[in-house]
Simulated assay, not measured.
Amino acid sequence: MANNIEVKELLDAGVHFGHLTRRWDPNMAPYIYMERNGIHIINLYKTAAKIDEASEALKKIAASGRKILFVATKKQAKDIVADKAAKANMPYITERWPGGMLTNFVTIRKAVKKMQTIDRMKADGRFDTLSKKEKLQMNRLREKLDKNLGSIADMTRLPGALFVVDIKREHIAIKEAQKLNIPIFAMVDTNSDPRQVDYLIPSNDDASKSIDKIVGYVSDAVIEGLAERKAGKEAQAEGKDTPAPKAKAKPAAKAAPAPAAPAAPAPVAKAEPAKVEAEASEEEE
């Protein structure tokens, strides 16, 4: 994957621009290339290597069937993340992070089910029996729930991983994931502490071009993982449908002829006593 990542593309997207030197986090020192005009410049070769590492891990998670939750509530990132995550068929949060989204997941699921109940009422005609005021209240509740939780309606269990843009802004999401030992993937700028995440991608998390480029690489890796999972399922289904070839019955082996019984020795003829006496008398004479 790293071979497919062009450093020039990262450079053109402005991925290398960090924050002002006075706002840096010393733990980001290994990923900083130099200082220019009071701004830290990120080492893009290390960025490419980290993109490769994170992409491989995310591909495996997607191939295993687990969901990856994308989180980005900052203005310049929300539309990009929503678009990329939707293409990869993954849940995302681009509005305010609901407190307890992960640590109190059961309550969040109840809110999602409430939204689905309203949809069922509209489908089966029960919604039409309500008064005008009740309809208005229901529609407002439905719009509010859809805005905050509509993108995670299909997430029936805790995600297998989190992908975060700007870990300083999404610190609540980071803390909840840490409590539940959920792997955290993130774009980390020079003003953030990389020790908070499991897979960091040192990059500019403020410019929309930089965010679009990094999230694009990540979402492509997730789509690859889903494609591998689908191909594996199809191959498994084909294997089950195809009957196993019947083994041909081998002809029965011919019975070996029984060994011939050894011939009994001929009996020795006994001399008659009269004849023996005659022969003895002849010798005396």
Rank of each mutant, 00 (worst) to 15 (best):
M1H: 03
N4M: 05
I5N: 06
E9D: 11
V15N: 01
G18Y: 01
L20G: 12
R22W: 04
R22P: 05
Y31G: 05
I32P: 00
I39D: 00
I42C: 02
K50L: 09
D52L: 02
E53A: 03
S55G: 10
E56N: 11
L58N: 11
L58W: 06
K78W: 08
A86L: 06
Y92H: 13
N104W: 04
I108T: 07
I108Q: 05
I108E: 02
R109W: 01
K110W: 07
K110G: 08
D119E: 10
K122Q: 13
D124A: 02
G125Q: 13
T129L: 13
T129R: 01
L130E: 06
S131K: 15
K135H: 01
K135T: 13
Q137F: 15
N139H: 00
R140I: 10
K144T: 07
L145C: 02
L145M: 09
I152M: 06
M155N: 05
T156H: 13
A173E: 10
Q178I: 00
K179E: 01
K179P: 00
K179C: 12
F185L: 03
S192Q: 14
D193W: 09
P194N: 10
Y199R: 04
I201R: 10
P202V: 09
N204Q: 13
D212T: 14
D212S: 14
G216Y: 06
A227N: 14
K230Y: 14
A231N: 06
D241T: 10
A244W: 01
A247S: 11
K248W: 00
K250S: 03
A252K: 15
A252H: 09
A256D: 04
P257G: 14
A258G: 12
A260C: 09
A261T: 08
A271P: 12
K275F: 08
A278Q: 11
E282A: 15
E284F: 10
